[in-house]
Design a protein around this nucleic acid. Structure first.
Lengths: 160, 160
DNA sequence: CCTTTTTGTTAATCATGGTTAACATTATAT
DNA sequence: ATATAATGTTAACCATGATTAACAAAAAGG
């Protein structure tokens, strides 16, 4: 099993892939404010766990599992961010920082409950939505994510 | 500065002190499901940071700073637990587990906002409450904590 | 008392996740 | 085409927080 810390590298790779078209060790290091050897280590860890394909000096490619996990992580972040920003009304930067930390500790179950709650509170008129971070999104969730595109920040062109 | 991991030892010591009257390395280890050497290390770390008084083979005593920090940690836990249990409606055991993890990552600012939100949502009729985890509690908070004594679980005899 | 059990300490070790320094490879620019 | 710059890798190392094994001290029970 992969750690929360390593998951962060995967998420970052996914985002860079969508933004830049290709993923380089240096870019990941820059984005994560860490060194290249750290990225290298994480990379081989991710490879060993089947989340990326990689050969030395080659191109970094996420596997299907890798993509799915990355999407899930990003989504967990969005849900927590949305809650902190729009429900608790934390200031934007604070909400981002805190969402990053919180989403790394909580279980899927909690994320699902939080998502449903946020849906409800922010008045989506769909209290029956059976949100599950591990499943395909329902129309309601999809719509919500689209409507709330602004929360996707610089990932706006990535999701869905 | 002390780490979140070390804070947990302090919190546990505080709880044991209130429950048992005295704190022993073995009890802390049992409660935290770790080994005695781990407790010993944490103990000297806490001592170096002025949160406990201790000499080898002596009795563990929390300083005033230690007590205050422990109270703060317990309270952060209670707030998160209350939110997960009564607002998100997580099952009790899950709420406890998750609260433990979450409260270790979030900032005082977020805790304060969450506390205010929980107060509001659970309808305490005091929307002006200026909760601050670092300050003396307002009447509203004190009352809330009293009313919600049940959430304090086995710590019921400790707080306030 | 003094033996035994419980409790606490110390030293050596480990895993994780990070670093720096040195080097290898690839890409770029003239 | 080749020197230079950028990028990627490797090895050695560090901090943290934990462990096990061995030992020391204190408490408890005959």
């Amino acid at each position: 099993m992969i750690s929360k810390s390593i998951e962060e590298y995967l998420k970052t790779m996914y985002v860079i892939k969508k933004q830049e078209g290709k993923v380089r060790v240096t870019d990941v290091a820059k984005k994560m404010d860490c060194t290249k050897p750290s990225v290298n280590k994480a990379l081989y860890n991710l490879k060993d766990n089947g989340f990326v394909n990689y050969e030395a000096y080659g191109t970094i490619e996420l596997t299907e599992d890798g993509e799915n996990l990355a999407k899930k992580i990003l989504e967990a972040y969005d849900i927590v961010y949305l809650f902190l920003k729009d429900v608790l009304e934390l200031e934007e930067e604070e909400a981002k920082r805190e969402a990053e930390k919180i989403k790394s500790t909580i279980s899927d179950k909690t994320i699902n409950k939080l998502a449903k709650y946020v849906h409800k509170v922010l008045d989506l008129n769909n209290l029956d939505c059976d949100y599950d971070i591990n499943k395909e999104k329902c129309r309601c969730c999809t719509r919500r994510i689209r409507l709330k595109a602004i929360i996707i920040l610089n990932f706006i062109n990535i999701l869905i």
